[in-house]
Amino acid sequence: MAIAAHEETVHGSGHAHPSDLQYVYVALFLGVVTGAEIVLGYRHPNALIIGSLLTLMVIKFATVALWFMHLRFDSLLFRRFFLTGILLAAGVYIAIMMTAFQFFGNDTTSVPLNKIPPPARITR
């Protein structure tokens, strides 16, 4: 699955890690983004606000994963494991939510009964 294309690649466990100061900068960045999120959170939630909140969330998520979890420096295999989980989760759960939120139309009875066309011909 995630490793299908990963044939015998040797990645080191990353010796070029950032310095402490760089980590602090990353944390500061995260703090600033969180501040922006909180400010946005108080605005009336229209599509733009929700979109920017979700974008900021993804940025924070990726920053922590790439820097603090060292995915930026570590083997691609780790990234693939994590991404497989994230993408599968996103796929199946978004599908459920679409069904539940009636994006797909949750039940057939929402079509008024008299609007359902009669079957063309019934053969017995």
Binding site: T99, Q102, F104, G105, N106, T108
Partner: peptide
């Protein structure tokens, strides 16, 4: 059979 809707 659960009435999941035509698109689903």
């Amino acid at each position: 059979a659960s009435g999941a809707g035509p698109v689903t």
